[in-house]
Design a protein around this nucleic acid. Structure first.
Length: 462
DNA sequence: CTAGGGTTAG
């Protein structure tokens, strides 16, 4: 398509007016300009063109006004919609059914139902009957507000008014029913719709499938999905997501994976988001290896996990104490130029310390420092507790000093853990010497000395 | 002789 306008254009309107002095032109160009601006998402310029056309004395067509309205609605500029509508009245442009339907849609998004009905009365006075779009807009609005009774009332009078319900009408009503947990009734309505000769499309299938999924009725969802494929209606990304998440909520991840393989056999494209959802979900359900193999499978399609997905995997591997796999993934991240963050390192260090590999934990901590990610209190706790558990009191003490000096981390809990191990394995003198050394460390940092730690341990009676 | 175009959904 040829680009008619772009954001760095100058004064197109002005140029057109100047042009008009030299050659034969039709003011229809202003209509086209308005439409071009709306299409290019330059609504301000579209609005400006509308204004200036009116000033110059040219009356834009109703279709141009509708274009502008449509653009304004999409950007939720409600007030400006009414400005356009008033201006139309002032200069004698007659609104048509499109205009009214768009404005009714604007009113429906508000809470005030009376306003809508008033407006419709006015519209009828001007000689326009509500058409199928009008009814659908109203039905949809009632359904969204949970007013199913009103919605079905309109559905019934549509026949009498000669506006036959279409796919939009049925889909809106089914959606309303599903929201109230009445998915069986929605399905009956679906049957009635088919019986009346309408062919369900992706949207109507999706609505029903979504309703079943929300209620955890995955068998029904699945058979509808097959039904839709059988009828030549292609599932889209919404269908896939809704069904996979439906299985996910029921913790039936294997079923979800099987279904996706089936869909792939039908050459239905699966969005990476859906696979990513499953990878994360498998991690959450403590199945990091399944998650990892899924990740490898989709990597062949060019999917590249981001740091959050990597962290989920690493967290899950660590939670199951598969620290070697977690470290390997961290290395993979670094290779792919994805910088591990505090979450990554916290998980790894925590896990290493838990399985009595605190020396390795400290090594990882040094690496994060080298990469410019400062450790936090949780990492301090993990390492000190780890060393204490492994009875490596000297390393614990020197690390405590390191965290204080380099990162201003003064963690009472870690200190107490150290004191506790010492109290169980050394004499009071050694303990007092430790406290002296730590107090000096704190004074060096300009911190007040300090907290009767020994109290906590029942040594206080000294 | 005529030019181009607008509305509702999960």
């Amino acid at each position: 398509m040829v680009k008619v306008v772009s954001p760095d254009d100058g004064d197109v309107f002005g140029s057109l007016v100047l042009c008009g002095e030299d050659c034969n032109w039709d003011p229809v160009v202003f209509d086209m300009l308005i439409k071009a601006y709306v299409k290019a998402n330059m609504i301000e310029q579209g609005f400006g063109t509308f204004r200036r056309s009116v000033e110059v004395g040219f009356v834009p067509s109703v279709v141009a006004c509708n274009c502008l309205l449509n653009g304004l609605v999409k950007l939720r500029c409600v007030d400006r919609c009414w400005e356009v509508y008033e201006e139309m009245g002032r200069i004698g442009i007659h609104p048509n059914a499109y205009t009214f339907n768009m404005l009714i849609n604007v009113l429906c998004k508000d809470k005030d139902v009376d306003k809508v009905n008033e407006f419709i009365e006015k519209m009828e006075e001007e000689g326009f009957d509500p058409d199928v779009v009008t009814y659908n807009t109203l039905i949809n609005s009632y359904c969204r507000k949970g007013r199913l009774g009103d919605a079905f009332y309109l559905y019934k009078i549509m026949y009498r008014r000669g506006a036959l319900p279409d796919l939009f009408s049925y889909t809106a009503l089914m959606n309303g029913l599903c929201k109230e947990g009445k998915v069986r009734e929605a399905h009956q309505l679906f049957h009635r719709m088919v019986h009346r000769g309408l062919s369900p499309d992706t949207m109507s299938y999706n609505t029903l499938i979504c309703g079943y999924c929300k209620e955890g009725k995955m068998k029904e969802s699945r058979s509808l999905l097959y039904e839709m494929i059988g009828n030549g209606v292609r599932p889209d990304s919404f269908t896939c997501r809704v069904v996979v998440e439906g299985y996910g909520n029921e913790s039936k991840l294997l079923s979800a994976l099987n279904l996706l393989s089936e869909l792939e056999r039908f050459e239905i494209p699966i969005s990476p988001d859906i696979y990513e959802y499953l990878v994360v979900k498998l991690c959450e359900e403590n199945r990091p290896f399944a998650a990892k193999s899924l990740l490898e499978r989709i990597s062949h399609y060019g999917y590249v996990p981001d740091i959050d997905v990597y962290n989920e995997l690493i967290l899950s591997l660590c939670k199951c104490n598969y620290v070697a796999g977690a470290l390997a993934l961290k290395a993979e991240m670094v290779n792919k130029n994805i910088k591990p963050n505090i979450v990554t390192y916290r998980a790894l260090i925590d896990c290493l310390c838990k399985i009595n590999k605190s020396v390795e934990g400290e090594y990882v901590m040094k690496e994060m420092v080298k990469f410019g990610v400062p450790p936090d209190t949780a990492i301090c706790k993990a390492l000190i507790n780890g060393y204490c558990k492994e009875m490596d009191i000297n390393r614990a003490e020197s690390l405590l000093g390191f965290f204080a000096r380099e990162f201003q981390i003064f963690d009472t809990e870690s200190y107490n853990a150290l004191v506790k191990v010492l109290s169980e394995n050394a004499d009071v003198t050694t303990l007092m010497e430790l406290q002296d050394r730590m107090q000096k460390e704190l004074e060096l940092q300009g911190k007040m000395p300090c907290v009767p730690y020994l109290d906590d341990l029942g040594f206080c009676s000294i």
